[in-house]
Amino acid sequence: MKNRLKVLRAERDWSQQDLAERLEVSRQSVNAIETGKYDPSLPLAFRIADLFAMRIEEIFQRD
């Protein structure tokens, strides 16, 4: 799955650590999601969407 997490984070000038703290996950989780190594569960995807005030499909797209 592709995602726009890195771009959205950069737009807000957040580091991976900043985003990890806001999502209450580890920095390595943010890195794994950003690089497409790990697809988040639906609850975490909703948390990410809520944080950026966007819909899930605006952040995550099919390959």
């Binding site: 209450e24 996950v25 580890s26 390595q28 989780s29 794994a32 790990y38 988040p40 569960s41 975490l44």
Partner: peptide, 8 residues
Amino acid sequence: ESDEYLRA
């Protein structure tokens, strides 16, 4: 473990 990635 509450971090799903670390748990997985």
